[in-house]
C-alpha cells in the first residue's frame, strides 16, 4: 500500500505538487474566515513599512505595509477574494461555454457556425476592456470582475468542449444511441458530456490559474474588489511607490500570485497526464 502510494507520487509529481500548493492556499483562505494573525484592516503607523519580523512578531511574519497593516493577514483574506472571483468566473465560463460548445458540436450546420462566430466576437474582448466597460456601467467591484473574467472564459471553454464533443460524436456509440431512439439533447447529456468531462476538468484547473492572474490584474488597475477589502492585485499596486524602501511589500503578493498560478497550472497539467488515454488504456 505504502509502496503503491510512493509510486503514484513519483509518477504524478506535477499533480502532487499542484495539489499541495492549491490545497494550502484554499486552507489559508478558509482559515481567514475564522482566524488571522492580525486584523488585515487595522492600521498601525508605528509599524509602517516594517520588514518581516523586523520588530519581532509584532511586525508580522511577512512585514507591514505603508499603513502598518499586517501583510500575511492581508494575503490570507486576499486569497479569499482571489479564489472567489476565480471560481465564480470559471464556473460561469465553464457552464455557459460547455453548453455552447456541445450545442455547436450537435448542430454542425448554420447554428454551429453562428455560435463559432459569436465565440470569436466574445474572445476579441479582453477581460480588462470588458471590466472597464462593465465597471463604467455598474461600478468596480467583485461582481464586475467575476462577470468580466467569466465572459472571457466562455469562448475558451466553448472551443475546447466543441472540439472534444466533435471527436466523441464521431464514435459509433453515438450512432448506436441514435438507433436507440435518443434525441440530440439526450445524447449530449448521456454520452457526450460524460466522455469529455475529464477534458473539462483539466481546462477548469488551467483556467483557474488564468483567472487568478486576470483578477490580480484587474485589482491592480483598481477594477477589482474595492478597498478596504485586501486584494493581491492592489497590494502589488500599492507597493510600487515603496519598491526600494520596502521590497517585501511587492514580493509577498507577487509570490502569492505566482504560487497560486503555478499551483493550478501544475494541477491542470497533472490531471491531463493522469487522464491521458495513452496512459489509461492498459491491458
Amino acid at each position: 500500500m505504502r509502496a503503491g502510494m510512493m509510486r503514484w507520487l513519483r509518477d504524478n509529481k506535477a499533480l502532487a505538487a499542484g495539489l499541495v500548493i492549491t490545497v494550502s492556499i484554499v486552507v489559508l483562505a478558509l482559515l481567514s474566515l475564522f482566524w488571522v494573525p492580525m486584523s488585515p484592516t487595522k492600521m498601525n503607523i508605528a509599524q509602517k513599512l516594517k520588514g518581516p519580523l523586523e520588530n519581532g512578531f509584532s511586525s508580522g511574519l511577512l512585514g507591514k505595509d505603508h499603513f502598518g497593516r499586517d501583510i500575511a493577514s492581508m494575503l490570507m483574506v486576499g486569497a479569499r477574494y482571489s479564489l472567489t472571483v476565480a471560481l465564480a468566473s470559471v464556473a460561469i465560463g465553464a457552464m455557459i461555454g460547455t453548453a455552447l460548445g456541445v450545442t455547436a458540436a450537435a448542430r454542425p450546420g448554420f447554428t454551429g457556425a453562428a455560435l463559432g462566430r459569436l465565440n470569436d466576437a466574445i474572445f476579441a474582448l479582453p477581460p480588462i476592456l470588458s471590466a472597464i466597460m462593465l465597471g463604467a456601467l455598474m461600478g468596480p467591484g467583485t461582481t464586475t470582475a467575476i462577470l468580466a473574467i467569466g465572459t472571457f472564459m466562455i469562448p475558451v471553454f466553448a472551443r475546447v468542449t466543441r472540439g472534444a464533443a466533435m471527436q466523441v460524436r464521431a464514435r459509433d456509440y453515438i450512432l448506436a444511441a441514435r438507433m436507440a431512439g435518443e434525441g440530440e439533447v439526450t445524447i449530449t447529456l448521456l454520452h457526450v458530456i460524460p466522455n469529455i468531462a475529464s477534458q473539462i476538468i483539466v481546462q477548469v484547473a488551467i483556467q483557474l490559474a488564468m483567472a487568478i492572474l486576470t483578477e490580480a490584474g484587474l485589482s491592480f488597475l483598481g477594477l477589482g474588489t474595492p478597498p478596504p477589502a485586501p486584494s493581491w492585485g492592489r497590494m502589488l499596486a500599492d507597493s510600487q511607490t515603496y519598491l526600494l524602501k520596502a521590497p517585501h511589500m511587492a514580493l509577498a503578493p507577487g509570490l502569492a500570485i505566482a504560487l497560486a498560478v503555478l499551483g493550478f497550472n501544475l494541477l491542470g497539467d497533472g490531471l491531463s497526464r493522469l487522464i491521458d488515454p495513452r496512459r489509461r488504456i492498459e491491458r
Partner: peptide, 15 residues
C-alpha cells in the same frame, strides 16, 4: 431494426 458496428472499441460508450 437494429445495427451492429465494425469497431468494437468505438461502439460502446466507455463511461
Amino acid at each position: 431494426f437494429q445495427m451492429i458496428f465494425q469497431d468494437p472499441y468505438g461502439s460502446l460508450d466507455p463511461r
